[in-house]
Simulated assay, not measured.
Amino acid sequence: MASNALALIYHSSYNLELPGHVFPAHKYSHLYNRVKRDPVYASWDILLPKKVDDADLELVHTKEYLDDLFSYEHTPRTMYSELPLNRSIVESFMYGVGGTVLASELSDKHQFAFNMGGGYHHSFPDRAEGFCYLNDVAIAVKKQKETKPDINALIIDLDLHQGNGNSYIFQYDDKVFTFSMHQGNLYPKKEISNLDVNLEPNTKDDEYLSILETSLNQIRKDFDSNIIYYVAGADPYEDDSLGELKISMKGLKERDLMVRKFAESLNIPCVVTLAGGYARDFRDTVEIHFNTITAFGEK
């Protein structure tokens, strides 16, 4: 297991300017700056990912879809994205996937490896969806399985929206367990995870954390995981513009700490990705993501 507890990964290409778009894709540089202002984390080395290799993309995505994506063409395969399609956006996704692949590789040396990007959990093998062009977690899991066929990967997805892409991709893989806890009456069209928890609007901290604890205890009994991929969406937040869950900033950090303690109790590594966050006050989204870093970085 790991000598150093937490590795942080970031690339400036994560950052995008999408004026007027609900997806605050400039949050990544703000989070990086927040880390660099913090007295604890300012001196830490932040690791630089490379762009994901084409061969790794093909572990999950079809050649036909990738051809359309890299031609920047609006086709039936790319049209379900809610983002523009151009070179800088595709490059951003390639670095974001590279960050999650790097985090997966670092799980041999670090108990927690944190990609300050990624979590593109709506992307399917043959199409884009939502704000997701490439599925970083699925690619990282499949790549890890090439060298470690005995990996039993647990995907814990606590974004506001169901991780439908991962649920679909791994639906027949008994060595990957998908768990998604999300607002039930929202986008997207649901796929079937190994464990889905559909939350009602106005769910608050105590109920949320109790359900999460119960779910993790059930997973402990049902699946012998040896690595966790945690999709740590900021959007269950009580002032998120796209959701109706009522989880406080404090409750979200307690959520993150619960996932950390779960990984520690199993003595297995955890790869963390950011995923969504659309707080009405943009600074809240950045702070929630920073709190996730501190939840995994604190001694």
Rank of each mutant, 00 (worst) to 15 (best):
D206R: 08
K27M: 10
M181Q: 11
K221L: 14
D205W: 12
L154N: 00
L195F: 13
T285P: 07
T178G: 00
D45T: 09
A42Y: 10
D173T: 05
G184Y: 06
I227Y: 07
V231M: 06
T292G: 02
D67I: 11
D224M: 09
E287A: 09
C132H: 09
K36N: 07
Y72I: 04
V40G: 00
D68M: 11
S104C: 14
F112A: 06
L195R: 12
P149M: 09
S225E: 10
F112I: 09
G165I: 12
A279F: 09
N4L: 14
T78I: 12
V40W: 01
D281R: 11
V272H: 00
L242G: 03
L257F: 02
N226A: 10
D159P: 09
K190A: 12
Y72V: 10
L18C: 08
T273N: 13
V35W: 07
L18G: 09
Y172A: 14
I46N: 03
V35G: 02
A279G: 10
L102G: 02
Y41H: 06
A5H: 05
Y187G: 00
L245C: 03
F282L: 12
L66H: 01
L102W: 00
N226L: 13
N198T: 05
K299D: 10
A2L: 06
A295W: 00
Y28S: 08
T75H: 04
G184R: 07
I139C: 08
H74Y: 06
G184F: 04
V97Y: 11
M94Q: 15
Q171Y: 14
F114T: 00
S210V: 05
P39L: 06
H161P: 06
S210Y: 14
G165T: 13
L199R: 03
D68W: 13
D45V: 01
N291W: 00
G276T: 03
I155G: 07
E238H: 11
E200Y: 00
S71E: 15
Y72A: 09
C132P: 03
A279E: 13
H61Q: 07
M116T: 03
P149F: 11
R127E: 08
I227G: 12
N291C: 01
R87D: 12
N291K: 03
R37N: 15
I247Q: 00
E91F: 02
I9L: 05
Q162R: 11
D281W: 05
H161S: 11
T203S: 12
F124M: 15
P149T: 06
E105Q: 13
K143E: 01
S104T: 13
L216K: 00
V197T: 04
P125W: 01
N185I: 11
D235E: 06
N198G: 12
K204D: 04
